[in-house]
Design a protein around this nucleic acid. Structure first.
Lengths: 347, 347
DNA sequence: ACCGCTTATTTGAACGTTCAAACTGTGTTG
DNA sequence: CAACACAGTTTGAACGTTCAAATAAGCGGT
């Protein structure tokens, strides 16, 4: 028992060839005569040979591994979407033999320090960044240090500072709220409010724009209000909205948290049937039967990997130097549900 | 630009010592005279030296990396707890320089194949398993193949078959439902129902037991009903319960999904104030203000790592051969909230 | 028969680290 | 004072792979 694991030499001996030929069978099969390859494959199978990853990494100086930062758990439902993204990324990476290494840090500085350590020590070849924002330090740092990366989240104007332009995939938030607004115009009425986040917010303003444009095109008008991203804040803001503007026909929200809050407020105000549409399509929205915008994080993950590793394979592509078509917008989808109507009896 | 990264030899030259001394400064400082260590540290800093992980792994035959399987995303809120666990595991691992490699597979067979590949190729030293169940194939396979592992989820009788006993950490489900039941007995009344999952279910039956025991001790009695783990099924089951047993004072649930369903059913039945307590303390329960049992996945993660890697360090401990105290139960906590009372107006 | 060209295969070296053993110097002990 | 223990340090080798260069084999054309 516990005998040494077979290596490339053992396989070579059994197959009657040299080390390098075995290596070629695995890494460049077209260089090997089919008959030879067959013998080698048989030897590999017989011995149960598996290449030692560290030796390969040491020699090739590539790890075929990508680092993903996990944002700290804050409670609330906002983190759920990113977890779905990480899941999807892991699945897509597995299909092309790319490994996913997750890491966590409490601050941006610590995150950067960690990425530096992981790349310097050769543990990862590149990084997937998520949740980019205005003036994102990570982006410029990664670009300056020549570390290959791609992001879930676009380059918001200020973030681009220093870093030319980089590879990103994002969900077309404006298209999402446009879908929602157009549906509401048709199904509920013309007085449609938008409940979003305080400006400036790249993602938030983008989502507001879809509503705004759809309203303008329809010649309709409605109030735009803002609240920080939580159920409680959304509820408060919606409460005030409904009190001041009684004729509201629907509320388009920048997140499911806000939508849930709005739903509660609507029920309190005696309008439990009010059409409310959220964003992110979280399990919570699903549980309550709230309509929402599905981001399709699986598609985002696949695209991010394509930008970072190319169409196929597990070798990272260096950061682009000239602005090429290295950005992709994913079309979201409107998920309509019949809501569980709420009526708050408190207060 | 793009000059070769410094290695141990470069540091040695600059500090006027040998390779091995540099290595010792990093891995066994007590073997090095303080004055020498200081010189070496300075040289390391000056060059910005960082050991190459692959070379180290190759030589030591350890990767200081643990594999974690991500269960496929099924929608619903049940996966949220595991994501929290993965987060916590990543944070705790980072503190002791253990890497976390996530992988995904669509079937148990594929998961096992993946673990085999990752261990054979030396990418991971051990595995963290979650969601153990009756007759869990992974457990026996890991044990048979001598792959170090620890699990979030205990060894349910049938799962132990073949594998003696293994290292696990779990949340004391019975203690959780006992807390919930005792609170309900005191705050709501003596007729308390339990809404759980169909038997046999290791986790589910364990949670039922806490309610059962607390009720017996109080000399109280109540119905036990079952539904598959979804909001819809929970709602249906609770609807029926409330129709058949009008005197119910509270409902203890095996999950937040069931609790949300029960909450809706209660509102429908004109009893929106009925005390309902869920399990898992998901963001959804938080958003709705539902009381629930907090599992403290952070504590679980820390314990799992301690079992797998020992009190400190990043070297895996082999699977135990004799039954030692290699299991831990984490005490859950009852989180009380003032619910957003629901009344369904449908139907 | 020779050359040139391609295809197939082998050989030596290198990636950067740590292990194991050898080698110093310094103090302790009988 | 020789023998010994021991802390501190160095040296050669090894981990398993792939790169780069060298060799061998096949083959058509002159």
């Amino acid at each position: 028992m516990a005998t040494r694991a077979p290596n490339v030499e053992d396989v070579a001996r059994l197959a009657g060839v040299s080390r390098q030929t075995v290596s070629n069978v695995l890494n460049a099969p077209q260089k090997v005569k089919p008959a030879t390859a067959k013998r080698v494959q048989a030897a590999i199978k017989e011995l149960g040979y598996r290449p030692h990853a560290s030796a390969r990494r040491l020699r090739t100086r590539r790890s075929a591994t990508v680092g993903v930062h996990l944002d700290p758990y804050r409670g609330g439902i906002s983190g759920v979407l990113l977890d779905r993204f990480v899941h999807a990324l892991t699945e897509a990476a597995g299909e092309r033999s790319v490994r996913v290494l997750v890491h966590a840090a409490r601050s941006v500085a610590a995150e950067i320090a960690q990425i530096r350590e992981l790349t310097d020590s050769g543990e990862i070849d590149g990084v997937v960044v998520s949740g980019t924002h205005h003036d994102d330090q990570r982006i410029s740092w990664l670009a300056e240090n020549g570390i290959p990366f791609a992001s879930f989240g676009r380059s918001w104007p200020a973030a681009t500072q220093g870093a030319e332009d980089f590879r990103w995939v994002d969900v077309d938030g404006a298209a999402g709220t446009r879908l929602a607004t157009e549906h509401a115009l048709q199904a509920a009425g013309r007085n449609i409010a938008f409940l979003g986040w305080p400006s400036p917010s790249g993602t938030g303003d983008d989502r507001a724009r879809g509503w705004q444009e759809a309203m303008r095109e329809a010649g309709a008008k409605g109030p735009r209000i803002a609240a920080v991203d939580s159920v409680a804040a959304g509820r408060l803001a919606a409460q005030e909205l409904l009190a001041q503007t009684p004729g509201i026909d629907a509320v388009i929200c920048a997140s499911d948290s806000l939508a849930i809050g709005a739903h509660m407020a609507a029920a309190s105000a005696g309008r439990p049937e009010l059409l409310i549409i959220g964003f992110d399509n979280t399990p919570t929205a699903e549980a309550l039967g709230l309509s929402s915008i599905e981001q399709h994080p699986e598609r985002v993950a696949r695209s991010v990997l394509e930008l970072l590793f190319g169409q196929r394979g597990n070798t990272v592509v260096p950061n682009p130097t000239s602005p090429a078509s290295q950005q992709r917008l994913i079309a979201p989808e409107l998920i309509l549900r019949t809501p569980v109507i709420l009526t708050s009896l408190e207060q």
